[in-house]
């Protein structure tokens, strides 16, 4: 469904993304991981057409992204940006439905879709009339997700949708999200720092460093046959503390 070929992006002198190829098939959940600044958000922004690549092309469902078709294609993508990006001056309801109303979708359809999503992400219905400033961090993340899902997109782009949440809520939301993905059969590209979260969600993990894809494949493959010592170090850096913790509890 999504074919990325030879795509690259630099900011001034420093390359944010080296020439990269990647393919995502329908229904797949692909997780981008890697250290901070390695180009994960950049890749997501390129896919959403928010920034233009210096070279290469992106093909979505057979059509190449261009400035002419980008507004059409964006309506088929749901994008939750890293910081959530809710509009502070709009209520939860308005935040979620803003695009549907702009497209003059039927009011009843909007209402029923809103209901569906409220139940899906388990947001208490009375929160719909609140403003983002009156929500907790986890509630805001849910609202961002509702907004991305509103127009029933074919592709979901999630940039650390669970970042900056406390571990309990994060765990809960991970479970919910995974259920939602499998329920909706969505194609998902998700960014995370956390290797456990990546392993939990992703059929395919894409490990990046300094704008390069180092290795792509299932978690097992990365763990068992690391392409580079970096892969091993990246995985163990996150597993070690946990293993030590479990050791200490014995």
């Amino acid at each position: 469904m999504l074919v990325i070929s030879q795509i690259s992006k630099r900011y001034g002198d420093s390359p944010a993304l080296a020439s990269t190829d990647l393919q995502v098939s329908t229904g797949e959940t692909l997780v981008l991981i890697g250290p901070s600044g390695c180009g994960k958000s950049t890749l997501l922004r390129l896919i959403a057409g928010l920034i233009q690549p210096d070279a290469g092309s992106i093909t979505f469902e057979g059509s190449q992204l261009s400035s002419e078709n980008i507004f059409q294609i964006r309506q088929r993508m749901g994008y939750v940006i890293q910081e959530g990006g809710l509009f502070p001056h709009l209520s939860v309801r308005d935040n979620v439905t803003v695009m549907a109303r702009y497209l003059r979708r039927d009011a009843r359809w909007i209402d029923s879709r809103l209901n569906e999503l409220t139940q899906l992400v388990q947001l208490p219905a009375e929160m719909l009339k609140r403003f983002p400033a009156e929500l907790s961090g986890g509630q805001r993340q849910r609202v961002s997700l509702m907004r991305a899902l509103m127009l029933e997109p074919d592709l979901l782009l999630l940039d650390e949708p669970l970042g900056a949440l406390d571990p309990m809520i994060r765990y809960e939301l991970q479970q919910e999200l995974k259920a939602i993905f499998s329920q909706l059969c969505k194609t998902v590209i998700m960014v995370t720092h956390d290797i456990a979260e990546a392993a939990f969600f992703g059929q395919t993990l894409v490990l990046m460093r300094d704008g390069h894809i180092i290795q792509a494949g299932p978690f097992k493959e990365l763990a068992q046959t690391p392409a580079e010592p970096f892969v091993e170090r990246f995985i163990s850096a996150q597993r070690e503390p946990m293993a030590q913790l479990i050791e200490a509890l014995k």
């Binding site: 507004f71 964006r74 940006i81 509009f87 803003v98 695009m99």
Partner: peptide, 15 residues
Amino acid sequence: IPPAIIESAQALGLP
């Protein structure tokens, strides 16, 4: 206006 807000408005597809 924080860039994140503009970016998510763009990402939603608002011209």
